[in-house]
Amino acid sequence: MKKHSYIQMGLGMDIAKSDFSACIMGFEGKKKYKVLASSKFSNTPSGFEKYWSWSQKHLGKHDCEDIEYLMEATGVYHENLAWFLYDKSVKVVVALPSQAKDFMKGEGFGVKLIK
């Protein structure tokens, strides 16, 4: 099966105290984004491992060299996952909620892109 190529891929996470939602998106250019997968995981070390396996399975279906793991700074709830991903040597981006909202508005999106 031929892999689909993307200019950039982002793995966005919406993190709460007990769990987090994750979404994988591909950017094809000219503001064309495609949601490739979404799921929910517990905000625990075992949930992080399940998330990592899930993300690697889905990323293996696509060609892309520029992959970012993105999350909003949510009190302290995002920190353990951010460190877990950092230890995997991937590009981790932690944005302030106001910056994420302003970016979405600038891109012309009225709501978050969670499937």
Rank of each mutant, 00 (worst) to 15 (best):
residue 71 M to N: 01
residue 104 M to A: 14
residue 15 I to T: 00
residue 9 M to L: 13
residue 10 G to M: 06
residue 30 K to L: 11
residue 60 G to C: 12
residue 32 K to W: 04
residue 25 M to P: 00
residue 12 G to E: 04
residue 28 E to Q: 15
residue 89 S to N: 15
residue 98 S to C: 09
residue 26 G to V: 05
residue 46 S to K: 11
residue 29 G to T: 01
residue 78 H to V: 06
residue 57 K to W: 07
residue 22 A to W: 03
residue 102 D to V: 10
residue 59 L to T: 07
residue 44 T to W: 06
residue 99 Q to M: 11
residue 102 D to E: 12
residue 25 M to H: 01
residue 2 K to N: 11
residue 60 G to S: 13
residue 78 H to P: 00
residue 55 S to D: 00
residue 82 A to L: 08
residue 103 F to L: 12
residue 83 W to F: 12
residue 26 G to E: 09
residue 77 Y to F: 14
residue 27 F to L: 09
residue 13 M to Y: 04
residue 36 L to R: 11
residue 36 L to V: 10
residue 84 F to N: 06
residue 76 V to H: 15
residue 114 I to P: 00
residue 79 E to M: 08
residue 111 V to F: 06
residue 21 S to T: 10
residue 30 K to Q: 14
residue 82 A to F: 08
residue 28 E to N: 09
residue 35 V to R: 06
residue 33 Y to S: 01
residue 70 L to G: 12
residue 5 S to E: 15
residue 79 E to G: 03
residue 27 F to N: 11
residue 66 D to S: 10
residue 111 V to W: 01
residue 46 S to F: 02
residue 61 K to T: 09
residue 1 M to Y: 07
residue 67 I to N: 03
residue 71 M to S: 02
residue 109 F to G: 06
residue 92 V to R: 04
residue 104 M to G: 09
residue 3 K to G: 01
residue 115 K to I: 01
residue 64 C to L: 06
residue 89 S to R: 15
residue 30 K to V: 10
residue 56 Q to F: 08
residue 106 G to Y: 10
residue 48 F to S: 00
residue 12 G to P: 03
residue 99 Q to P: 02
residue 97 P to Q: 05
residue 61 K to L: 14
residue 55 S to G: 08
residue 107 E to T: 12
residue 88 K to R: 15
residue 92 V to N: 07
residue 110 G to R: 05
residue 61 K to Y: 09
residue 38 S to E: 05
residue 104 M to T: 05
residue 70 L to A: 14
residue 70 L to N: 08
residue 108 G to N: 10
residue 58 H to T: 11
residue 68 E to T: 12
residue 2 K to V: 13
residue 70 L to P: 00
residue 44 T to Y: 10
residue 61 K to M: 12
residue 4 H to Y: 09
residue 55 S to C: 14
residue 45 P to K: 07
residue 55 S to P: 00
residue 27 F to G: 01
residue 63 D to N: 13
residue 66 D to R: 14
residue 45 P to A: 02
residue 39 S to F: 09
residue 110 G to C: 07
residue 89 S to A: 11
residue 56 Q to C: 12
residue 41 F to T: 01
residue 53 S to N: 06
residue 31 K to E: 14
residue 62 H to P: 03
residue 59 L to I: 12
residue 110 G to H: 04
residue 45 P to Y: 03
residue 87 D to S: 14
residue 74 T to V: 15
residue 48 F to K: 00
residue 34 K to Y: 01
residue 32 K to V: 13
residue 57 K to R: 13
residue 24 I to W: 02
residue 105 K to C: 05
residue 74 T to Y: 11
residue 73 A to D: 04
residue 101 K to E: 10
residue 38 S to A: 06
residue 115 K to E: 08
residue 78 H to C: 02
residue 16 A to Q: 14
residue 108 G to M: 06
residue 62 H to L: 07
residue 59 L to W: 11
residue 29 G to I: 02
residue 50 K to P: 00
residue 95 A to M: 12
residue 34 K to F: 01
residue 99 Q to D: 08
residue 24 I to K: 02
residue 54 W to P: 04
residue 45 P to C: 04
residue 20 F to V: 04
residue 18 S to F: 02
residue 3 K to R: 14
residue 114 I to N: 10
residue 94 V to H: 08
residue 13 M to R: 03
residue 34 K to N: 07
residue 51 Y to V: 05
residue 14 D to C: 03
residue 49 E to Q: 14
residue 37 A to W: 05
residue 67 I to W: 09
residue 88 K to P: 02
residue 79 E to Y: 08
residue 30 K to P: 01
